[in-house]
Simulated assay, not measured.
Amino acid sequence: MTTRVTLISAARSEASDEVRFDDGRPLTAAGLRAARAAAGSLSVPADARVLASPSPRCAQTADGLGLRAVPEPGAGGCDMGRWRGRPLEEVAATEPEAVPVWLSDPEVAPHGGESVRELCARTEGWLDRLAAEAGRVVAVVEPDVVRAAVVCALGAPAQGFWRVDVEPLTATGLSGRTGRWNLRPGGRIGPR
């Protein structure tokens, strides 16, 4: 029983443009235009389950792409605790030891939210639940969910999370079943 999952990373949001920890800010005007421009480039089978992370930018990206996505809490981005909504530069200035530790140790969550390892485990559980039903899945998700899914698919240690770059509006494919996924690296969707 094979499941094919296409993860589409969300378009640019105000938070991503401002290098700020996501706090539910909407897409930028340019991000929404890019999603709309990419709408015709996706081939989504009629029987595919279409999902989106519960963030506004994922919902808006799905809408811009012309997808009728069902919110999927299991595919939510990393819980950033008290860093939510704060600019990275500000956090680095006020907690100079915390950011380097967070970026180097997947076990820690100095922000009081979710660690990288916890995000990877949650994402792996979500993929396992998707694999319980064969078929196609298209999910518009946060870039950190794509990173976590790649780490899980490769069986890589959580330290590899920060080694995966995920651009806005890219599609990353996974095919397989619980505990065994094949990876098709992300490619840009829409006009070049």
Rank of each mutant, 00 (worst) to 15 (best):
residue 1 M to K: 06
residue 2 T to Q: 14
residue 5 V to F: 03
residue 9 S to D: 11
residue 12 R to P: 06
residue 13 S to E: 14
residue 14 E to L: 14
residue 16 S to D: 14
residue 16 S to Q: 12
residue 20 R to T: 07
residue 23 D to N: 15
residue 24 G to M: 10
residue 26 P to K: 01
residue 27 L to W: 11
residue 30 A to R: 10
residue 30 A to G: 08
residue 31 G to H: 07
residue 34 A to W: 07
residue 34 A to L: 09
residue 38 A to G: 06
residue 44 V to N: 07
residue 45 P to N: 08
residue 47 D to N: 13
residue 48 A to Q: 13
residue 48 A to Y: 09
residue 49 R to M: 12
residue 49 R to Y: 15
residue 53 S to R: 04
residue 53 S to M: 05
residue 54 P to Q: 05
residue 56 P to T: 08
residue 56 P to M: 11
residue 58 C to H: 09
residue 59 A to I: 01
residue 60 Q to D: 05
residue 60 Q to G: 04
residue 60 Q to E: 10
residue 61 T to P: 06
residue 61 T to F: 08
residue 62 A to R: 02
residue 64 G to M: 00
residue 64 G to Q: 00
residue 65 L to K: 02
residue 69 A to K: 05
residue 69 A to C: 07
residue 70 V to W: 05
residue 78 C to F: 03
residue 78 C to H: 05
residue 78 C to R: 08
residue 83 W to S: 04
residue 85 G to H: 04
residue 89 E to K: 04
residue 89 E to S: 10
residue 89 E to F: 02
residue 92 A to D: 09
residue 96 P to L: 04
residue 96 P to H: 03
residue 98 A to R: 00
residue 100 P to I: 04
residue 101 V to F: 00
residue 103 L to P: 01
residue 103 L to I: 03
residue 104 S to R: 12
residue 105 D to T: 12
residue 106 P to R: 01
residue 107 E to Q: 10
residue 108 V to C: 08
residue 109 A to R: 08
residue 111 H to G: 12
residue 118 E to Y: 01
residue 119 L to F: 09
residue 120 C to Y: 09
residue 125 G to N: 04
residue 128 D to E: 11
residue 129 R to L: 11
residue 131 A to L: 10
residue 131 A to G: 15
residue 132 A to E: 12
residue 133 E to M: 14
residue 139 A to G: 03
residue 140 V to T: 09
residue 144 D to Y: 00
residue 144 D to A: 04
residue 147 R to I: 01
residue 149 A to L: 07
residue 152 C to L: 06
residue 153 A to Y: 00
residue 153 A to G: 00
residue 155 G to S: 10
residue 155 G to D: 07
residue 156 A to R: 01
residue 162 W to V: 02
residue 163 R to K: 13
residue 163 R to T: 14
residue 164 V to K: 02
residue 165 D to H: 15
residue 166 V to N: 06
residue 167 E to Q: 15
residue 167 E to L: 15
residue 168 P to E: 10
residue 169 L to E: 05
residue 170 T to D: 02
residue 170 T to Q: 06
residue 171 A to P: 10
residue 174 L to C: 13
residue 175 S to P: 03
residue 177 R to N: 12
residue 177 R to A: 15
residue 178 T to P: 08
residue 180 R to Q: 14
residue 181 W to R: 11
residue 182 N to W: 12
residue 183 L to H: 15
residue 184 R to P: 12
residue 186 G to F: 08
residue 189 I to K: 04
residue 192 R to A: 15
